[in-house]
Amino acid sequence: MTEANVVYSDIKFTKSKGNATVTPSPTESTYSEIRILKTEPSAGSQQQTGGSKVTAERVAIVVLSALLAAAVIALGFTCYKHHQTTEDLQKLTDENTALRKNITERRCEVKTCNTVQKPCPKPPTDPCHKCEDGWEPKGSQCYYFSTDESTWEQARHECRRRRGDLVKIDSEAEQSFLVQKVSDKMVEHEDKFWIGLTDSVKEGTWLWADGTPLNERLTFWSGKEPDNWTEKDVDGEDCARMGEKNGTDLRYWFDQSCKVSQKSICEKSAETGRQEAVCILA
């Protein structure tokens, strides 16, 4: 227990008579001793206040730790659900691929051949792609090489009557295939074939028959072609043809007046799922 500080003070009292104040003589002065206790806060109170601050800080740390733990648990759960969803999606993709393969095999399947099941020879492309008589297959496309000579517009009309259109060349492999086929069918130098390419809408802007623009990085113009020569037609040369007898290059596109009569190449997608062979594919 701490000891209180004691403060002493002398107080002098005077006597009064009636309305007159009498100043006592020094011998008549009355003294009274007053002790005033001045106390200081104890160390225990200070320690208690400090302890309250420490306790509050500990509570805050505990709360923050709990929130952090909850966030980590939530993140872990989210990652787990994402992983589970990814696995489920992959499983569904695999099942869909297997189902499509099974359906394709069933569509290509036929009953019997002379009551005996025989393996069908596998063509180099999808066996379920079939072209009509007179059309030549290449991948998923069919091509018709017309030997009837007509203008570009007439040739396109005939292709559309056959449920196709003038050929649209999308790759070097397709160009190579057509060059070989056309070369075998040509009789002389000018015996070329119309393709579905024209700049009749706007000079210099070449479009395919379906309206898509020509890919300038995938062209097969010969030499200085297209030159839009106007000697035979003042309207110039607004349609494209291809071919070279015994040609060994791929660059055999030439512009020509759309009014000139030429042979032509039609193209359409092969039919699928209508295999007519009476045997089961190996």
Rank of each mutant, 00 (worst) to 15 (best):
K15G: 02
K15E: 01
K15F: 04
S16F: 00
K17P: 03
A20N: 09
T21C: 09
T23A: 03
T23L: 04
S25E: 12
S25Y: 09
T27C: 12
E28G: 05
T30V: 15
Y31W: 13
Y31P: 01
S32C: 11
S32G: 14
S32D: 13
E33G: 07
E33A: 08
I34Y: 11
I34E: 15
I34G: 13
R35C: 06
I36W: 04
T39C: 04
T39D: 05
E40F: 11
E40R: 14
E40T: 07
P41T: 13
P41D: 08
P41W: 07
S42E: 14
S42H: 12
A43E: 03
S45H: 03
Q46A: 08
Q46C: 09
Q47I: 00
Q48H: 10
G50I: 07
G50R: 09
G50T: 08
K53R: 09
K53Q: 07
T55C: 03
R58D: 02
V59G: 06
V59S: 06
V59A: 05
I61L: 02
V62Q: 02
V63E: 10
L64H: 01
S65A: 05
A66V: 05
A66K: 07
L67I: 05
L68V: 13
L68K: 06
A69Q: 04
A69R: 09
A70F: 10
A71N: 07
V72K: 10
I73W: 06
I73Q: 00
A74Q: 00
L75G: 03
F77K: 01
F77R: 03
T78Q: 01
C79I: 14
Y80M: 01
Y80K: 03
H83T: 11
H83K: 12
Q84P: 02
T85G: 02
T85L: 08
T85P: 00
L89G: 01
L89M: 08
Q90D: 02
Q90M: 13
L92E: 09
L92Y: 08
L92V: 13
L92M: 12
T93N: 14
T93R: 12
D94K: 15
E95N: 14
E95I: 13
N96V: 15
T97W: 12
T97S: 15
A98Y: 10
L99N: 07
L99H: 14
R100K: 13
K101C: 11
K101F: 13
I103M: 05
I103N: 10
I103G: 04
T104Q: 14
T104D: 15
R106P: 04
R107P: 00
C108S: 12
V110A: 01
V110F: 09
V110Q: 06
K111T: 03
N114H: 00
N114C: 00
T115C: 06
T115P: 05
Q117A: 15
Q117P: 03
P119D: 04
P121N: 11
P121C: 09
P121L: 13
P121W: 10
K122Q: 12
K122G: 10
P123Q: 15
P123G: 15
T125A: 08
T125M: 06
T125P: 04
P127F: 07
P127T: 10
P127R: 07
